[in-house]
Simulated scan of single mutants.
Amino acid sequence: MKKVKVCLIGSGRAGMIHARNMAGSVPGGEIYAACDPDVKAAKAAAEELGIDTYYQDYKEAIGDESIDAVIIACPTKYHREIAVAAANAGKHIFCEKPMAMNEEECDEMIKAAKSNNVKLQIGFMRRFDDSFREAKKMIEEGEIGDVVLVKSHTRGPSKPREWMYDIEKSNGPLAEVCSHDIDTVRWFAGSELKSVYALGGNFRNKEIAEQYPDFYDNVIVNAEFENGVHASIEGAQYVQYGYDARVEILGTKGVICIGDMHEKKITSANESHQLKRPSMHSWTHLFKDAYLLEDRSFIEAILNDSEVECSGYDGKMAVKIVKAGNESIVQKKIVML
């Protein structure tokens, strides 16, 4: 069986999840090289993955004729540059979310992939989660009637990294935290957003408020789709109590709820009459299987020359909605898309 040789570009947490999957759990896929501007990190990643090839410069990596595909898992501001170069070198592309900094960059990536006849898949792994797939099937079969409202929230426990405070560089928590929520509500509603109204505030990182006055660590978005379905998106950073990602889909005849706050199905009690149950500590644990399934889907699309399940268009729509949400926060008004 032909193996698709993959190079990881960016050896952070998300990137290494994909690389470890490619190291033995994805039929037809093979992790061949690692690339990181920090050469020590690139070397460490290669050693952990049991491979010999690593690069510091992505241009050298995509110049390696042995490489068939790249996984782009570096900061968002570099995605367009690397993806276009990879496409022009004939490499298939898996790009982590957010796809890019703006719609124009997304268009460049889509055009480069199309003109070079390579696959471009965006890392919306929730579409590959068993519960999300089952919910989609239930909607399509009419189990809850017509969809009325899709609510999705993501709350992360970690303190934002320094570069995330600059909205010009990160596009804010709407991009870094809520891109998955945005894709989720689009997917379940089966339509495109028509209008958004967003509120943001800095509640947990006030020590940086003077230096980064536009930063928000809590955001709420209310929106309406072209088909009339309503949406509510909420995101938060540095909540500290755990990783919390849940979805509710309200229909005319029922409701679907996805996810809970608990990592383990165990509850304890002691002499103080306190019930205790561990909360979910990380997205890496919650969506472990979904990451594997999306990596398998990417390789299958290459080997079978089939359409990817999460396209560049899906990535672009999420970026477009992030921009509209950030505009709404600043302008304090409804933004029409």
Rank of each mutant, 00 (worst) to 15 (best):
Q237E: 13
R13N: 15
Y58R: 09
D64E: 03
E104H: 06
L199R: 11
G172P: 03
G50P: 02
A45E: 10
R186T: 01
R127V: 00
G235V: 07
Y55N: 04
M16N: 12
E162C: 02
H230K: 12
G156Q: 09
D244S: 15
I182A: 03
H285G: 03
A269I: 15
Y241M: 13
S311Y: 06
I167S: 01
I110L: 09
R155G: 13
Y216D: 14
E81T: 15
A44C: 05
I144Q: 05
G12V: 09
M317S: 00
I321D: 06
G90P: 06
E108L: 12
G12W: 10
N222M: 04
M1Q: 09
A73Q: 08
D214L: 03
G315T: 07
D129V: 01
G235Y: 07
N222K: 07
C95T: 11
V147G: 00
E141W: 01
M109C: 08
K137M: 05
D57F: 12
Y212V: 12
F94W: 08
I299Y: 00
S66P: 02
D295I: 00
M1D: 11
E248F: 04
N88I: 03
A100Q: 06
S152N: 03
P98D: 08
E141A: 10
K97F: 05
K111Q: 13
G145W: 07
L303C: 02
S66W: 05
V247Q: 04
A14W: 11
S311R: 09
E96G: 08
Y212W: 11
D68A: 04
N227I: 14
G123V: 08
I93P: 05
P27A: 08
E248M: 13
I93K: 05
N218D: 13
K316Q: 11
R80C: 14
Y243F: 15
G10H: 09
G172M: 08
I208E: 08
K119S: 04
W187A: 14
K111D: 14
G156K: 06
I208N: 06
S282E: 07
Y313P: 01
D166A: 06
A45W: 09
M336P: 02
D217Q: 11
K91H: 12
G29W: 00
K253M: 12
H285A: 07
Y165M: 07
E48W: 06
S195G: 03
E192D: 15
K59A: 13
S328P: 05
Q240I: 10
K43R: 14
I329S: 07
C35L: 10
P157Q: 07
L174N: 09
S11Y: 10
L292T: 07
E224H: 05
S152C: 13
E141L: 11
V221W: 06
